[in-house]
Amino acid sequence: MLNEKVICAGFGGQGVMLMGQLISYAGMIEGKEVSWLPSYGPEMRGGTANCAVMVSDKPIGSPVITDNATTAIIMNLPSLDKFETDVIADGNLLINSSLIEKKAAREDLKVYYVPANEIANDLGNLKTANMVMLGAYLELTKAVEIESVLSALKKTLGDAKAHLIDINREAIKKGAEAVRA
């Protein structure tokens, strides 16, 4: 049974909110129950940002993730410190190793180190680092289909930015490859 509880966290500007929205949106396209809950506060560009995403076969009760995340996608060091403890035992911890040198402290998690910024840079657009991490997440959990995410992205970007779909598709692919056993 599908019951994903995902924390996406990083600096403002890294696209962590979008990453979470795309998972929710893709889930909705596939007829699943979804929710997206952002952190909000007196925050600014460069500050920390995070969102809690749920994708489930059953109606979603509380949209809040406490210490029961099935996956945490961590884009910067402060977020690792903050959210590592919120993942369930045997859950996934995806760490953007381009920006985070520190290793995971817990030994009961499935930890994946993804050099997301480097991969994105090699693709020619650093801003796709979030999509690299998303690709890794999708490969590991198969929570939603990549095509659903791309459909969601098309709607989010709109016609003016439709030319960015290809590089995002590529970023998702590279992210998936990075965690493929």
Partner: peptide
């Protein structure tokens, strides 16, 4: 409340 105002759902 702030939660229902800020969250996204279908």
């Amino acid at each position: 409340d702030g939660m229902i105002g800020q969250m996204m759902e279908p």
